[in-house]
Amino acid sequence: METLVACCIGFLTACGIFLMLRGRTFPVMLGLTMLSYAVNLFIFTSGRLTLRGAAVLGTSEHYADPLPQALVLTAIVIGFAMTAFLVILAIRARADLGNDHVDGKLPDADSFKKESR
């Protein structure tokens, strides 16, 4: 189970970073969302992976750490709000600047051709 979760987190992070390095706001946003998913899973596993354990400390030998669950909840809420803000900001930038490039202007036609080749 550990290997599977670790691979999941790694794959999500890799995809997130790849997408974040793109030039348009929409892929960047998707990348950030994926990165925040990876982070949430990672925080969750920081309390160790336990099967069928109650999230209560001290009453039994076999328990799941409740704190990472609380932390991940906070992180999800904050990440969600921030992503929502970024979506609105990206739409505003598209309207204000006339394109959806993160720098506010498209690269020159020549270099753009080279890039897409």
Binding site: T83, L86, V102, G104
Partner: peptide, 14 residues
Amino acid sequence: KTKAAVHYVVLNLT
């Protein structure tokens, strides 16, 4: 401001 804000927000989210 919009242009600066896009950079600022993306960097801080990262």
